[in-house]
Amino acid sequence: METIATRPKSLTDLQFTYCPGCLHGVAHRLIAEVMDELDMRDNTMGVAPVGCSVFAYKFFNCDMAEAAHGRAPAVATGMKRARPSMHVFTYQGDGDLAAIGTAEIIHAANRGEKITRFFVNNAIYGMTGGQMAPTSLPGMKTSTSPYGRDTDDVGFPIKVSELMSALEAPYYIERVSLLTPQDIIKAKKAVRKALLFNKEGRGFSMVEFLSTCPTNWGLDAIESLEWAKENMLPYFPLGVYRDKSVEEA
């Protein structure tokens, strides 16, 4: 029988631990497919975060480090400097990257570390049970903003791609969504660019995925996609925020 679809060899055989309707699995698969397509797996090492994707170090089938909360960009810096010929990627959620790890990500980006960052933004802390994230939307109810995010009190959601693109060094920054099949096809193109630029040693690249959290948003899988389209897309506009390959061309 002809095999027409198979698991990417850049993923292990382990079953994902994600909730039904969660899009981490989609993001993992996109990254792994591109690693296979670019024949990068044997020259790639990754860093997993703390959060729902904490077990990413078990899922990607290459050498992986599990970092302390927010420290993935620093750990990846140490790895890249120790093994400069290897390609290094990090995978982080919004609490990990945009709250506790803000300093690490900004300075890794500012140094132009030749590393690929994958940033999954679903506007909530998932693993700890649905607390307010730095990217939770104005008015959004979470277990630590039970009356809705009050922007007078705790400020506005951080737009990470816009923030990073204020720096000189980053090579490529794009925000994509995982909310529709068409978006996923576009997201894969962004992942491909980000990993290719890494393979070519061009510089810091980051892909921000807009994602969902059906479990902690209290919605089913379909409703959560609709909620994200209505609420997240207007606040976090999709698009390329930096692409030096275009400028160079």
Partner: peptide, 22 residues
């Protein structure tokens, strides 16, 4: 060799973690 002035001691020790992991 690699010398890198980190953004904090927190970042520095985590860079150590990454390099030691290699």
């Amino acid at each position: 060799g690699t010398f890198l002035q980190a953004s904090s001691e927190v970042a520095a020790i985590n860079m150590v973690y990454g390099a030691a992991g290699c």
